[in-house]
Design a protein around this nucleic acid. Structure first.
Lengths: 249, 249
DNA sequence: ACTAAAACAAACAAATTCAAACATTTCTTT
DNA sequence: AAAGAAATGTTTGAATTTGTTTGTTTTAGT
């Protein structure tokens, strides 16, 4: 066994075991510990492992996926509750469209093991969240809204026109019993409208702080959607009001 | 047995065993070790193996779809050096296209304050890196390559056809003086080709470990690009060889 | 905080491998 | 058949790898 071969084996070992030990490698390859040390030093220089007393481990960047700082959003607990309810409504082998927003990000976090799903999203953070997941992920691309992580612009429109999905989860800034769903910018309302157009089942996700509000740009009426998924803190009068025109979960 | 035949057998051996040894080959073909050395040297030139004291091993580019994870943090120092050189070559108010890859990710990290730039990329990680930056960011979108963070698929092609940029930075898995730039999958080679087509200035970024190698799918010849940006560890003979056909920085 | 055991790395030594230069053989071409 | 080119072998000093020794540093237990 030659040097390059041994070093390659060390890396292989490291990747399967997560860590390697000098005395273990030394007896495995029947070479002196000093030789292994030199191997590890060289591999560390290449950035392929991190040395530590007695052995080496994988560099952090390899083991953990970067939890891309998902800026602490408000009402996280509520959004997680909504997300749990939402994933129950995703049948196997669905094609799912996830609108941008933190509630949908929570949904994405629960989907990483669902290898039966195809997920389309216009949210960069959701893409990253699913980078190491089992599902197939498609991003719309487009102009990145700074800070937010949503893709916007005409390109998103064009992209969405080209696809059909089974389920869409739309985020909402404002939900009103008679005025329906609205959002602060025209731009986003166009995108959400297009999303609703090409989905068979349409859900709106919104925590209790979004209800009985109206925003600038109208997205859709409540009759057009299959239902609203929200959290337990929503006021019961509001639920009653809403249930006249749509389902509330 | 003639030279070409023997060299072919050496490669066959290498592919089945993963490694070959000079004394083993020497007695197998009944030639002197020096002859085997010359064979290995020649095959290494062609990028078909990596020599090591006493023998040779397969280049990693061929052994596997490198679990990108290992590539992730390899040669980070070199990539940072390359990134520093690269950003010097970005004039104000440029429209920049960043190919997927860790070297370009390092470039992106250096661009966050450049509010004069428009950056287009097919790498989800680069998008995220620039999420809180000053520059305008556009993502191609497309099918997310799991683990890697690159967007691939026909959509990326279509998107790239629609845009023109001032500068492109292409990542390379393999750079060879006569064979040019190549990459492990056809898919990626198409994308890189399209990127080169619509850029005025074309740079290839590659750390020293990528040189004198050939991979599966050809991307472009060295004459077609404005230059290669690499790190200081590159061997001076290689530089000399490359400078016959392109610029090396 | 102190101490003993283990791990480490610098320096040197031995063995092996390498490659340049030259010699020899084999193959091609005329 | 002779000359030239290409491939291979041989010699030899240099370079690389590995192991060993030795003193230092780190770790872990009391």
């Amino acid at each position: 066994m030659i040097q390059a071969e041994r070093r390659f084996e060390i890396l292989k070992h490291l990747h399967t075991e997560g860590a390697v030990y000098i005395d273990q490698l030394s007896s495995l390859f029947d070479v002196s510990p000093m030789t292994i040390r030199r191997d590890l030093a060289s591999l560390e220089e290449e950035g392929r492992l991190i040395r530590s007393h007695g052995g080496a481990v994988l560099p952090e960047t390899l083991t953990q996926e970067i939890p891309y700082q998902t800026k602490l959003s408000s009402y996280t607990a509520e959004k997680q509750e909504i997300a749990r309810k939402a994933v129950e409504r995703i049948p196997e082998h669905s094609r799912v469209l996830l609108d941008s927003g933190t509630t949908n990000l929570e949904i994405a976090k629960l989907l990483s093991k669902r290898d039966d799903l195809l997920i389309v999203t216009n949210d960069a953070k959701i893409s990253m969240e699913l980078l190491n997941s089992e599902c197939q992920v498609i991003s719309t691309g487009g102009e990145l809204q700074r800070g937010v992580g949503a893709f916007i612009g005409a390109h998103v429109q064009e992209f969405l026109k080209q696809i059909k999905v089974d389920i869409v989860f739309i985020g909402a800034n404002a939900v009103h019993p008679t005025e329906g769903i609205s959002t602060p910018t025209l731009e986003k309302s166009y995108i959400k409208k297009q999303m609703l157009k090409n989905a068979s089942v349409k859900w709106v996700v919104a925590d209790y702080s979004k209800f009985n509000k109206r925003s600038f740009a109208h997205v859709c009426d409540l009759e057009e959607i299959n239902g609203i998924i929200t959290d337990g803190q929503i006021d019961s009068n509001t639920v009653e009001e809403l249930q006249k025109v749509t389902n509330v979960y």
